[in-house]
Design a protein around this nucleic acid. Sequence first.
DNA 1: CCGAAAAGTGAATACAAATTCACATCACCC
DNA 2: GGGTGATGTGAATTTGTATTCACTTTTCGG
Lengths: 213, 213
Amino acid sequence: MVSRVAENRRKILNAARELVLEGGFAAAQMSAVAVRAGVATGSLYRYFKSKDELCRQVFREVSSREMNLLANIAEKQGSATERLIEVADNFAGRAVRGRRLAFALLNEPVDVALAEERRRFRRTHASIFQGLIEEGIANGEFDNVDAEITAACIAGAIPTALVGPLAPDSDVLDARGDEVVKSLVNFVLKSVGAKQQLNQSTPQAKPHQTTVQ
Amino acid sequence: MVSRVAENRRKILNAARELVLEGGFAAAQMSAVAVRAGVATGSLYRYFKSKDELCRQVFREVSSREMNLLANIAEKQGSATERLIEVADNFAGRAVRGRRLAFALLNEPVDVALAEERRRFRRTHASIFQGLIEEGIANGEFDNVDAEITAACIAGAIPTALVGPLAPDSDVLDARGDEVVKSLVNFVLKSVGAKQQLNQSTPQAKPHQTTVQ
DNA sequence: CCGAAAAGTGAATACAAATTCACATCACCC
DNA sequence: GGGTGATGTGAATTTGTATTCACTTTTCGG
């Protein structure tokens, strides 16, 4: 029956996603996925051509949720500055609160196939930022920076500063997470020459759109 | 004889380094290193406990050269702004001109051991930037930004924008490399609130200290 | 109910590297 | 020159997973 097939596919993807959430892509071994999904290892190959394909699928599912969130914010009403703040704040804030997921998506050592997927993910981030920057430049909110490069920089800076090699270690992020996020938003604002800055001692302008699952 | 031992160690390290320069750490397989060095695979283990140790050693040798270069610039005479420009310009410029090495050091998918080594490398970058930023803030050249976070962002932004997922592909960098580097330097200056900006249409303020090997 | 096709199984296999090791060779000292 | 320990060798082994496949079970139209 076609529905059972779809259901199994889901079970497998969910199992893989859970493992990734818990231990990164390193934890998503085929045998582990099979056990978690309650199927035989061989069955995985009825649904996915290879491990790479399965992992890519998981990556896309998880990352597209994140991307859509940010893309939606970028399309809301409001000044470019306001939306840039909210995008950056959500990007950084979600990463801080969902550190394990952020690590898996952005920084975990992965193989070539997933590195490619990650590349796309970053490119999408960058293009969201780029759109906002161009808009802000056009209407005079921002300085006339190189939007493409600046966007690429921002898309690289936030993850690296947060979950990357340079990250304050986890305990610090637990304690000072909000502060770090605020510094990051200010970094972004400064880099585009926005007039407005976040006040370091008050909460951010807008609440987060969603919470981390 | 002790000198032959030292010489062999060198031969092996050089072979490994050459392979990394040519094809990244993925190309540095033990058998390939052995062939290139003109020794048997077994001999590698007389000199290095494991592949990880060999690769780490190679990483350190190559990266420390880069780090020292930047650290020396940061310690030179001049305003914080001047030195920040020169550090950023050299960092980005060397990466553009030595793209394969930059890729291996900064972006290639690698295993956990090398990822750790890379973490140190980035941390060192960040601390160089952090020192300059703090100095610049102290004497009023820069705005009062969060030096730690800003430094971490810059250290992450430049590599990602250049050789990472977002990079214009290699051809573009060949053609527009200088322009991209200039945009990056301006990004850095903006992010710290420096008064001075690089002129987009003239060459950078200072010549590079060295050329890529 | 039957039979063919699809789906499920998991032990066996494939695979790609790193690593080992039993043996050969060398350097050096008596 | 002979003995001894260090060094060199590379084929064989190990290792850790992904992948396969001969077989069983299920599904479903006729």
